[in-house]
């Protein structure tokens, strides 16, 4: 296949993945809409949620046939949505691989903002489908899909740039390791942030309306369970981020720019993100900071993370981490 063919394959795969995410989102919306009419005690989602204290799941059968039918239908749509998401993730992967194949010489598909966004959303979606069972993430489906779909749309509409070879500073195998880990951590932190946001929503709604609620929020797991899922996602993301930002990043920076830590804006914000997440981990074990404040810190962490990715690239011209800029430019005029 020619490079141009790879490139158009990649573009088509992105479009197809977007469509599939959209269909998956629709399926989950149908699932949740039809659940509205089912009493919270019954229903398919309880099976998937984490709020089973003591682990003794009491299977209270649905009262009447109408409810039973609905429950079956919702379960069907839930499974359908999950299945389509899987397909979308696979097509998304094809898009990434094709993007790398389209470059000459072939390379990793994260040389600019568009590609980084493509890879980042892929990791969010892939982590979600992979952890779906282990962390029982069914309740997260509509949010994750809406997130991935909108970010993907932003990437296609505003960030798209044609395939180009990497500038030399970027072609290093440390780039591969560094960026893979940064993207993986970003994916995990994003899922964790979504969970923490839902924790806040759920806790607030419990405090306001008590246990009698309806709709989506009612079917979210209990706050403690959300907090635990969020912690596990962050606990996965944090060491990966540490590896990306404090180990491979400096090694690469040392090779490319002669100093392993230069307080470049991108480095500063990566450090800020790291410190905020360290604070989050502390907050979870500190009286008075547990729960609500910890969740807020997790959201602050996610904000710094995305600001670093988007904001710094657009607003800071001092950063040497320009994805599009040429390598090895002179920055300092010597005085003699």
């Amino acid at each position: 296949m020619t490079d141009a063919a790879w490139e158009s394959l990649s573009n088509q795969a992105v479009a197809a993945a977007g469509l599939l995410y959209f269909l998956a989102l629709l399926a989950h919306l149908v699932e949740w809409a039809s659940l509205r009419k089912v009493p919270v005690a019954a229903g398919a989602v309880a099976r998937d949620s984490v709020d089973i204290p003591g682990g003794v799941a009491v299977a209270t059968g649905p009262e009447d046939a109408a409810v039973e039918g609905r429950v079956r239908r919702t379960a069907l749509f839930g499974r359908l949505g999950y299945l389509i998401t899987w397909m979308a993730v696979v097509v998304h992967l094809v898009a990434l691989v094709a993007r790398g194949m389209a470059a000459d010489p072939n390379r990793v598909p994260w040389g600019n903002m568009y590609e980084f966004t493509l890879a980042g959303t892929f990791v969010v979606a892939a982590l979600y489908v992979v952890l779906y069972r282990k962390l029982r993430l069914a309740w997260m489906a509509p949010i994750v899909l809406a997130f991935v779909l909108s970010v993907l749309m932003v990437a296609v509409i505003w960030l798209y740039s044609p395939v180009a070879p990497l500038t030399e500073a970027l072609s290093s195998y440390w780039l591969v390791i560094h960026v893979v880990s940064a993207i993986v951590a970003t994916g995990a932190f994003t899922l964790g942030g979504i969970t923490s946001a839902l924790y806040l929503v759920k806790a607030r709604s419990l405090a306001k309306k008590g246990p009698q609620q309806a709709g989506y929020v009612a079917r979210l797991p209990q706050p403690e369970a959300l907090d635990r899922v969020s912690y596990r996602l962050h606990a996965f993301g944090f060491p990966v981020w540490t590896f990306a930002v404090l180990i491979t990043g400096p090694i690469w920076a040392h090779q490319a720019w002669s100093s392993y830590w230069n307080w470049d804006p991108k480095e500063v914000w990566a450090f800020i993100t790291w410190v905020v997440y360290a604070a989050y981990l502390h907050a979870r074990t500190t009286a008075g900071w547990k729960g609500r404040n910890a969740a807020i810190l997790a959201l602050v962490g996610m904000a710094t993370l995305w600001f670093n990715f988007i904001g710094i690239n657009y607003f800071s011209s001092t950063s040497q981490h320009s994805y599009a800029g040429g390598a090895a430019q002179i920055e300092v005029v010597p005085q003699r």
């Binding site: 500063v268 800020i272 410190v275 905020v276 604070a279 502390h282 500190t286 900071w289 710094i312 800071s316």
Partner: peptide
């Protein structure tokens, strides 16, 4: 915890 948050805050102007 507070010092960690302060450190994060104090790093911002430099960027």
């Amino acid at each position: 915890l507070v010092l960690l948050l302060l450190l994060a805050l104090a790093a911002i102007p430099g960027s």
